[in-house]
Amino acid sequence: MKKLLSLGLFMLTALVFTAFRPLIGTGYGIGDTAADFKLTNVDGTQHSLAGIQGAKGYIVVFTCNACPYAQAYEDRIIALHKKYAPLGFSVVAINPNDKNMQPGDSFDKMKDRAKAKQYPFLYLYDETQEVAKNYGATRTPHVYVLDATRTVRYIGAIDDNSEDPSGVTEKYVENAVDALLAGKEVATKETKAIGCSIKWRKS
């Protein structure tokens, strides 16, 4: 009887833990395999990571129009793509913000911004916010560098100075991609930066 009771208790605990796991360990960590996705680009076409030809990896950037930190990094995100897309690491920008919470980040406003700045990269709309939730993105900009097998190799900031590009001393994303291109271990795997919280839909 006692054995049965403890077994029941164990099973209950296991059940509770399984049920609440997504709430506890949210998002990807270094070494996890990121799931592919299918999202709409500003030109109306559907895109996934697998559709990027000749990819040696991916620079997935959760970003948006309205956040001043995202704006501060806009030119640097464009420069990242121009430098690394020819080497096999394309930037894939994803806007995860809810348009009702942040009207400046609607799909139409995304189109305007991409056109005005002639974004050379995909600017995808994560309307359901599922991709951002899967990745565990919390702020904009929030970068995930993946290798060819979609294994997460770097999570964090683009560099160490959001306000002043000329004051940057460490280019975190570039260093990570350079390491991957050279077949080396990424030295700085995770960094943190102040960013705008992702504007989650009110449930």
């Binding site: 919390t138 702020r139 929030h142 964090g156 900031a157 160490d160 100075n161 959001s162 306000e163 002043d164 004051g167 001393t169 460490e170 960094t191 943190k192 930066a193 102040i194 960013g195 705008c196 919280s197 992702i198």
Partner: peptide
């Protein structure tokens, strides 16, 4: 401070850097 990566964890390791 220009580099938040230096101080965010000292506030709390739980903090990703998003505000508020």
């Amino acid at each position: 401070e220009s580099n938040p990566n230096k101080w965010i964890d000292s506030v709390s390791p739980e903090w990703s850097g998003a505000i508020p």
